[in-house]
Design a protein around this nucleic acid. Structure first.
Lengths: 339, 339
DNA sequence: CTGAAAGCGCTTACAG
DNA sequence: CTGAAAGCGCTTACAG
């Protein structure tokens, strides 16, 4: 099937190719009558400008890139990223942009993809996830001058704008809630320690526990997988003095934690309270349903995409703070000692 | 930052642009010595050919597209698709291809994306998911002549090659297993009825139940969400004669079903056996762990991507059958009446 | 084996 | 307001 070009349209409409381009892109330079005639022909021929030709001629590629670092063996993507991508897509579609998705086995390869995309002129900008302290990607992106938005805390995003919310505040809310329920030994099953937002949560957790004079605030590190969450929970619950409440850095691990408690014969919530950071349908479906720190993850995606497209368009873009995760109390938390 | 072009390389290496192109693409037309010199320069300048220019000049865009139909409100992507996408990416990366991911609110918009991608010259081919009987996308893709591979049963893929496995056989395996455990009233919480593979499973379920003289084989339709799975389970378990075993068309609904059973005070597996179609880490983590129909979803993605790239390269491609899902017995199934 | 040139389908100054 | 032309960075016949 032959695709129509602006030359076809120009011929049909009896104008020059330049006029067609101006009309199609809403640029001045053609009279309203001519414009309308051109658009009618384009519509009739079901014309869509070749994106390669447009990009080559200096217009935007109308594509942004997103890389996800994950070992090649890992199957699937965490719920967090699924929601994030949904949100990103929502905003991109709205502005007729497409998303190039790339899984990278390592941080180095992630960097290589950014460089390659830049060299190949494939993307107009990129989204950056899972930022670590001193993440080399920030400097490289700044150096390349490729528009980019960081989905993560602003203090590690360098001069790049970031979209995130205040994790420290949410952590304080969760711990204060547990303390108000009478818990004195609160533990945490944390995310990947190297990630910047994990560090922020850890610091906040330690500080608020100290401020409330709770027992030593233990954070068990994990890789975010259900398996590692289960292992960490087992270790915490079989220690000599076990915690009466555990905060999990994601919902997958909280589900695993609930199962481990069952398995050890520890009743939730009467003997153990559980809080999941990030809410998901499964938190509501379980029995007991999980108390969660709820946030609009898709909203992060929408915001980040919007900021990125603004940056691509050359507008000055500032970091945006979304609403912090807020506590949604459900059946997995209760007073301690349970009354 | 200025990106190097083949002109820069040609100048540095003291050859023509044509020679650079031939050398870079492994084409004949340059002597080994010249080729090596050119490649060395390209490497030193960290050169990557502009993909827009390449595609415009008639080479491949090195991008394939994948659309996912989902209502705009839906957050997240089902585990099945995450695994599938992981597999697709794995193979695409291997061949230096990128993936354009697009969520479409409706079937019509999905079609519009295919057409647009084709017109814009954005993709070399597309992957097609969630095929229905008489799906209009098949005919459109055949008409456009855009290389495409269907991830779904071959009997609805028209002349397009498909990657899938025999769902009927797996369904038979699951029902025979339950019958062997003594179950006579087996129900099913099925997926979206319009999808071709759902229809195949439903037919197989009905047939095998009849063959084994089991009670009327009821399939409750759902939209694959945990919520709809929970509702369907509640209905089945509160009917006058309730089933003693339920097969769920995905893991999310099986988890929801287990929770509903708990909630109604029906013990799993002693009073109710549960089988999940598609296995996932959560099936193993739950208590009891879920008996599942396990299949290599990522493998479908790998196979489909490989077939698509072969088709893009102009090779004849035949539909491929992967290994069918096989039963992985775990704690959620037992003899009935439980001994 | 190599070089010079046309052409892919656009966009965008530049003249009229 | 419009047309003719250059140019984006490649690939690929076509001559030498």
């Amino acid at each position: 099937m032959k695709r129509p070009t602006i030359a076809d349209i120009a011929r049909e409409a009896g104008v020059s190719k330049g006029a067609v381009s101006y009309a199609l892109n809403g640029q001045p330079g053609v009279s309203p009558a001519t414009r309308e005639r051109i658009l009618a022909v384009a519509d009739r021929l079901n014309f869509h400008a070749d994106s390669n030709a447009r990009a080559l001629a200096g217009a935007k590629a109308r594509v942004v890139g997103l890389t996800l670092q994950r070992p090649p063996s890992t199957l699937g993507i965490e719920p967090f990223f699924m929601e994030l991508i949904s949100g990103v897509e929502l905003e991109l579609s709205r502005q007729s942009y497409a998303l190039l998705l790339q899984m990278a086995p390592s941080r180095d390869e992630e960097l290589a993809f950014y460089r390659r995309w830049f060299s190949e002129g494939r993307v107009d900008g990129v989204l950056v996830c899972d930022v670590r302290t001193g993440d080399p990607r920030i400097a490289v992106l700044e150096e390349l001058g490729l528009p980019a938005v960081v989905i993560g805390p602003p203090d590690v995003s360098g001069r790049l704008p970031s979209a995130w919310s205040d994790d420290a505040q949410s952590m304080v809310e969760a711990v204060e809630y547990l303390a108000a329920l009478g818990h004195r030994r609160v533990a945490r099953v944390g995310g990947i320690p190297e990630l910047a937002h994990t560090a922020i949560r850890t610091r906040a957790f330690t500080e608020v526990c100290a401020r409330l004079s709770l027992a030593e605030a233990v954070t068990a590190p994990t890789d975010y997988s259900g398996e590692s969450g289960a292992r960490a929970t087992r270790r915490l619950l079989t220690a000599t003095t076990r915690p009466t409440a555990i905060i999990y850095d994601n919902d997958v691990m909280a589900v695993a934690g609930l199962t481990v408690a069952h398995e050890l014969g520890i009743a939730v919530p009467s003997e153990l309270s559980i809080v999941a950071w990030d809410d998901s349908p499964i938190c509501r479906l379980l029995h007991p349903s999980l108390t969660a720190l709820t946030r609009d993850i898709g909203g992060y995606g929408v915001a980040a995409a919007r900021m990125l497209l603004a940056a691509v368009a050359g507008a000055p873009v500032e970091s945006a703070h979304g609403a912090p995760a807020h506590l949604t109390p459900r059946g997995s938390t209760a007073r301690h000692p349970a009354s």
